[in-house]
Nucleic acid binder design. Structure first.
Lengths: 154, 154
DNA sequence: CTGATAATAAATAATAATTATCCGGAGAGA
DNA sequence: TCTCTCCGGATAATTATTATTTATTATCAG
């Protein structure tokens, strides 16, 4: 059969395959519910909340429980297949497309999240490690403000 | 009169004066309970939780309510006199000594927090603002790992 | 293909942190 | 002093998340 061209459309499918492989490698079962979560993660560009993922999964699996979403995400976090952005005053947001830590910009009005590539954080992490004496394993870098759309409406 | 030498001991008192001045400037009342919270904030180097602040305040004011601590901290946040470090999976930590946003290292085992001065974040924020189009107003930069003590015990 | 079995899903209860409400009391200003 | 608003304390409510319990199902050996 013909190999699919690397179109923007095929990207989520590839990402899904990676995640499925990670599940299998860890000896985790691949259930329909989990596949549905993986698909949402692979396709979502909006850093969805658990609630949002739940709604999207519910379209295909109306009986799915919120707890299942939480458990699946916790597991995927452990396998480093999803990045959790945790906040104190709003629910966590998830990034299944770029699962390694990177900086984010969060709109404090509408909740939109952007994550352009910015100057490398490695030097910053190195600096922090050296000056603090900590052995660092991960980071969360968040900038808060107004997204372009909300600036207009301001 | 003689100017007080910049000893480590006099520092908290100065910081308290600054905070009191900020309250007055904002037309806020300076009550004994609030003074107690300010003192704890000015003296604490350990980025205390609300609960910890509550315990420390309770020594002097045994009848103080947790709600009062929360309300006072919220107010001080608004006046930019205290920095809240908000996390998803543990309660917030507060910094009343350096109230403007700066990077932190958090020990995932014991919760110790260090905040040495590291390479300036301004350029990073500028870069993020430019590439995202967001109008940024604050940031939270957290590095997670093991503090020196917990590394030994590991 | 089929059955055994261990992991998983759904439903629900429980927890933790924070925020809202309500009311009595105390301070600032007329 | 009187009044009026702000503040503190107690407690209820809310929100996000995690734990528990029981029934179901994916996986794999045969």
């Amino acid at each position: 059969m013909a190999k699919a061209p690397p179109t923007a459309h095929s990207e989520p499918a590839q990402r899904m395959e990676q995640m499925i492989a990670a599940l299998r490698a860890a000896g985790q079962r691949v259930t329909p519910q989990r596949l549905a979560v993986l698909r949402v993660l692979a396709e979502s560009h909006d850093h969805p909340t658990v609630e949002t993922i739940y709604e999207r999964v519910s379209r295909d699996f109306p009986t799915t429980s919120l707890a299942t979403i939480y458990k699946t995400l916790t597991m995927l976090k452990g396998l480093e297949q999803v990045l959790e952005l945790g906040f104190a005053h709003m629910s966590s947001r998830y990034d299944g497309r770029k699962p390694s830590p990177h900086a984010h910009a969060i709109c404090v009005r509408c909740g939109a999240i952007a994550d352009p590539d910015i100057g490398p954080m490695e030097s910053l992490a190195k600096d922090m490690a050296k000056r603090s004496g900590y052995k660092l394993t991960r980071h969360q870098i968040d900038f808060f403000g107004l997204c372009p759309q909300c600036q207009k409406k301001a």
